[in-house]
Design a protein around this nucleic acid. Structure first.
Lengths: 351, 351
DNA sequence: CTGAAAGCGCTTACAG
DNA sequence: CTGAAAGCGCTTACAG
C-alpha cells in the first residue's frame, strides 16, 4: 500500500537518498553507472514520487489553480480544457475552482490554493478591484488573469477585446437599419460586461437617431449556467412585451443570455429576425444550427486557455520577466439573425 | 511571504505545537482558555494551514481526483461542476484530469493522483477492464466510477441506465412508423456506447420488419468535443447519401454526435423530421431551441455529479461500508423531431 | 561525484 | 490536559 521511498531505493542500490534525489529529479552530476543503477532500482520497485513531500520541502507544488466562475459555462469549460492540456504537458496538476462570481468563495479558494502551495494561479477575477487577489500578491504566487483585468494591471493578463466585439455586433445591427437596440446584460458587475456595454454604446452613439435600452438583472440571478439562461429569458420576455415602442434588435452579452433570449423568442411565438433581430457575444456550435443561424462575436476560447497557461508557466519559470498583457480579438461571425439585408461589416478595430 | 506556522503560534501563545495542532484541527481535549488563546493568536497572525505538511504527515490529502474524458463535453462539465460543489463544502480540492479516453493518459493521471495522496478518485473509466485502475486498488484509494462500470464491480458506481434510455428513444421512433433506423455511435469502445447500442437493438428486434444500421467511427475520431461533432456530421452525411434504401430515422449516441448530425442535415439542405427523424442521447438547453425541438434521453447530469461525490465521501469517511451501485434513469424528453404523429411513449423500464 | 545531516510544517503516540 | 520528540519523504547546503 505505501509505495517505495528514496530510502528503499537507496538501500537497494547502495547509494544515499541524496544521490537518489539527484538522479530521479534529473539534477545530474551523478556518475553514469550510479545513475543507471538508481533508475533501474526505481523502476523495479515501481517508485512513484510523493508530491506532498516534495512540495513541503521545496515550498512549491507542481500544481496550478484555475479559478473561474463556472465550468458549466461552455466559455470556461473550453478554457479549462486548454489549460489542463498545457499543464499536463508540464507534469502539473490543475485544481478546479468555481466561484460563481462570489467574492467570499473566491477568497476561500485562494486561501486553499495558497495553502496548497500552488506554483501559480489562473483566474477570471470576480471584481476589478484587487480584493482577494491581494493574498496572491502577498504570497508571491505567479498569477495570470484571463478574460478580465484587475485595476492597475498588477498581473499578467490574457484578455479579449470585449468592446470591439460588442461594437462590431451592434454596428452590424445598425447597418441592417435597426435604430432601437436592446442590450441584455445579466449584470454589469463584471468588467467584461461593462466593456461590452461600452462597445454597444459607442456604436449606437455614432449613429443619429439610434438608441440603446439596457436590460439588466440582479447579481444573484446571473449566477450559474441555468440561472443565467433563465435571466436571459425573462429579460427578453420583458423586452418583447414592450409594445410598439420596443427594440427591434437585441445584443446578448454572453452565450447563456443568448440561449435564454432565444428561448423567450420561441416560447412567445415570435420569430428571429422578423420580430426581433438577435446578436450575441460568444459562439457555440449550436448557434450555427438554430434557425436562422446566429450572428455572434466568437471568442477564441481554446486559444485563450492555451495562451493564459503558457503565460503562467513563463512567469513561473522566469519570475523576473516583464509583465505581459495579451489582447485577443473576438471574431464576428456573420450569419442570418439580423434581417434580410446583410452588408459586409468592417472588421472590428481595437478600442 | 512565508506564512506563520504552528511554531510561531505556539511561541506567541505560550504552548507547544502539539497543542496548537489539537486546537486548530478541532481534535479537542484542550482547556478552553488555552484553546481560545491559540485561536486568537492564529487569527492575529493570519495563519493558513499548510496542506503539503498535513498531507505528508497523514498520508492523505484533502483533495480528490476527477478523471473524465473531456470537460469540454457539456455532460462532463455539468458533472464536474456538481462534484466541485460537494467537494468545496467538505473543504476538499478537486484535481481535474481529462483523458480523452486514452488509457495511457489515464494511467499517467492516476499515477499523479496517487502521488498527490488524494483521498479519493471519481472516474469515468476509459475501459471496462480494470486496467490502470488496478493502481487505485493497490494503493487503497477510495474510488467511485461514474457513467461507466468496471468489470466485476470492484468499485462503488453511479450509473445511468443507458440501455433503457436508448431503447425508449428507438421505441419512440418505431411508434412513429420508422422501420429502418440508423445508430450513429462514434465508437463502441466505451461501455455506455455499447449499452446504448444494445438498447437500440432490443427495441428494433421487438418489431417485425424493423432494422438497424450502425454507423461507427474510429476511436481516434471520437476524441475531443470538436472532433466528435465532426465525426457525427460525417457519419450522418454518409447515411443521408445512401439513396432510396437509406434509414428514415437516426439515433445519435451522445450530445456531440447529435450536434454533428444536425449540422449535416442542415448543410445538406435536408429537414428534420421529413428527410430524417432524429433522436439523441443527452439533453442540452439548445436541443429545445432547434427547429424542430429534439426528442432526447436526458441524463440528470447535475444529480449524477452530486451523487457520485456524495458516495465518494461516504466511502472516504467509512471505508468499511458495503459497495454501493446507484443506477439513475435517463428521462425521455419527447419533443418534435420524429415526425408528425407523436404518441405517448411508455416510460422506460430498467433492462 | 557522493554522503551525512538538517529541515520543510505538520500529527500523534507516549509520558507525565 | 499538555509537552517533548519522532517522523512523514523529500531536497539541499555542506563537507569531503
Amino acid at each position: 500500500m505505501a509505495g517505495p521511498t528514496y530510502q528503499d531505493i537507496g538501500r537497494r542500490a547502495g547509494v544515499s537518498t541524496a544521490t537518489v534525489s539527484r538522479v530521479l529529479s534529473g539534477k545530474g552530476g551523478v556518475r553514469d553507472e550510479l545513475a543507471r543503477r538508481v533508475e533501474a532500482t526505481a523502476a523495479t520497485l515501481g517508485y512513484r514520487s510523493n508530491r506532498a513531500a516534495k512540495t513541503l520541502r521545496t515550498q512549491r507544488a507542481d500544481a496550478i489553480g484555475l479559478v473561474i466562475s463556472d465550468v458549466e459555462n461552455p466559455f470556461f469549460a473550453s478554457i479549462a480544457r486548454a489549460v489542463e492540456t498545457v499543464a499536463a504537458k508540464q507534469g502539473y496538476a490543475v485544481l478546479l475552482c468555481n466561484t460563481d462570481e462570489d467574492l467570499d468563495q473566491e477568497a476561500l479558494y485562494l486561501d486553499l490554493l495558497i495553502g496548497e502551495s500552488v506554483a501559480g494561479v489562473i483566474i477570471a477575477p470576480s471584481t476589478e478591484e484587487l480584493g482577494p487577489l491581494r493574498q496572491l500578491v502577498d504570497a508571491g504566487i505567479p498569477t495570470v488573469t484571463v478574460d478580465r483585468k484587475v485595476a492597475g494591471d498588477p498581473f499578467d493578463a490574457v484578455l479579449v477585446d470585449h468592446r470591439a466585439g460588442a461594437r462590431g455586433l451592434v454596428e452590424h445591427l445598425l447597418d441592417h437599419g435597426h435604430r432601437h437596440i436592446a442590450a441584455i446584460m445579466g449584470t454589469t458587475a463584471a468588467t467584461p460586461s461593462r466593456e461590452r456595454l461600452a462597445g454597444c454604446r459607442e456604436a449606437v452613439e455614432a449613429v443619429d437617431g439610434a438608441r440603446l435600452t439596457v436590460y439588466e438583472g440582479e447579481l444573484q440571478d446571473a449566477v450559474g449556467a441555468t440561472r443565467t439562461m433563465g435571466l436571459g429569458e425573462r429579460l427578453a420576455l420583458n423586452l418583447l412585451d414592450r409594445g410598439r415602442d420596443r427594440p427591434t434588435a437585441v445584443f446578448c452579452a454572453n452565450n447563456l443570455l443568448t440561449q435564454g433570449a432565444l428561448r423567450a423568442v420561441r416560447r412567445s411565438g415570435r420569430r428571429v429576425p422578423d420580430d426581433l433581430a438577435v446578436v450575441g457575444f460568444d459562439d457555440l456550435p449550436f448557434f450555427e444550427l438554430v434557425d436562422p443561424p446566429l450572428t455572434v462575436a466568437a471568442q477564441p476560447t481554446e486559444q485563450l486557455g492555451r495562451l493564459v497557461a503558457e503565460v503562467l508557466f513563463e512567469r513561473i519559470f522566469e519570475p523576473g520577466r516583464p509583465l505581459e498583457v495579451v489582447v485577443v480579438d473576438p471574431e464576428i461571425q456573420i450569419r442570418a439573425s439580423c434581417g434580410p439585408h446583410p452588408e459586409q461589416l468592417t472588421s472590428p478595430s481595437r478600442g
